[in-house]
Nucleic acid binder design. Structure first.
Lengths: 232, 232
DNA sequence: CAACAGAGGAGAGCACCGCTCTGTCGAGGC
DNA sequence: GCCTCGACAGAGCGGTGCTCTCCTCTGTTG
């Protein structure tokens, strides 16, 4: 990955980067369906067959773009959240949610690639699962900090909802509870789903004739979610 | 539409139906991306060019399938809700939500076509906006009945959220309120978005390593939504 | 009843796609 | 300094959406 030994590998990494860069631009401009390996090759002045030396198939190129999109979105949310005072949990929550929406609005095709219909066969490649969790993990961190600070009651809400979740993951996220009736994790997953459901509905046009002020409605929604999740 | 005057129109409607039927089957089997007009024509034993007498483009065929999917999903939800006692609002709410999820699980590709990334240019055709609202309208009806029965407080929740919504639509859905601080409509739109966000996350694999018992988690979620929306 | 118009279909063809195979060339490694 | 092997171009295969032209057959109308 980093600091390739021989010059061959270096120029190879360079060209791989150029291909993904052009592909990312095509994706942003026209959407995943219109992304053509041949068009990317044309823009780079090479034969289409040459691209296959770097990406075994179009789906592999798309997978790279998916990982990039997850990482870009995750980074945007993390940076916005990091800019808030540590003890203002609600501000951190709001910043993360707003940054997610802002990124989605700025990169609609990349967002659709990642949170729309799955394009390849059906199973997401292994490489995508870690970056896909970044925003969810960020929200969980805010929540876990709230529990530590005594601002969030882990026991609130319907009892036992956490038993529907993977306990190992809850542990990793710092949302595990001794109380078997806890619903802290379930509330986090709920907020996570609702956040992206709201953004997807706006971006994909489902609330087109319903919501007139999307930004204000979104702010109401994430405040509602913060309350629902237990942030005081 | 109904009862075509001449025989020509009748046989035309017949063949149009056969084309959409075959296309719908191909969609259900392989997804929207793999739906090929030529393959449909082959199965029907006609030249691909002949199909263009009935659908001006592949996107128009897809639009027809989109409308069909919206209607099928809406009908499923409405029938399930209609099977519940009128005065048990929570049972009606649960039945509508569960039927929506069940239909999505049974028709993943059709669901993805409709609630995934928008495939055509970007603007949804006019013909799709009415059927797209069926599930949302159904949820609103349960909520409006709750207000009429005094079981739902239209004034609860954050004040003024309804000002972000289209007042004409709120009126049509029976969610309009004299109180300018009402949030009844906003809560309905929120629940609507969260419902489909949860289903999409499950179906598109985002909760794959997170939720272990999807059915139980979904039940917890829609109960949470019912409470959040104001159903006692 | 006969003639006509127009709907419906077939086939070839265009430009594009993903992907494969083969042949060649030039630079990196010994 | 030679040789190997990675990188690339080009042709080609089967597929796509869509168009155009030609022809047939049928419902309608004078």
């Amino acid at each position: 990955m980093s600091a390739p030994a021989n010059a061959r590998a270096r120029v190879r990494a360079q060209l791989t980067g150029e291909i993904t860069e052009v592909a990312r631009r095509h994706l942003a401009a026209s959407g995943a369906a219109a992304l053509s390996l041949r068009a990317v090759a044309r823009e780079l002045g090479m034969a289409s067959s040459a691209v296959y030396r770097y990406f075994p198939s179009r789906d592999d190129l798309l997978t790279t773009l998916i990982v990039e999109a997850y990482d870009a979105l995750g980074r945007a949310a993390e940076e916005a959240e990091a800019g808030q005072p540590r003890d203002d949990l609600r501000a951190r929550w709001r910043a993360a949610c707003r940054a997610t929406r802002d990124w989605a609005l700025a990169h609609p095709h990349e967002y659709a690639l990642v949170y729309g219909s799955p394009v390849p066969g059906y199973a997401a490649p292994e490489a995508t699962i870690a970056p896909a969790a970044r925003v969810g993990a960020l929200l969980s961190r805010v929540l876990a900090d709230g529990v530590a600070a005594g601002q969030v009651d882990p026991g609130a809400g319907p009892a036992g909802a956490d038993t529907t979740l993977d306990p190992t993951l809850l542990d990793d996220l710092g949302l595990a509870s001794d109380d078997p009736a806890s619903s802290l994790g379930a509330r986090a997953v709920f907020a996570w789903s609702a956040l992206f459901g709201t953004i997807s509905f706006e971006l994909f046009g489902h609330t087109h004739n319903v919501v007139t002020d999307h930004a204000a409605f979104f702010d109401h929604t994430i405040d509602r979610l913060a309350t629902e999740v237990g942030l005081t």
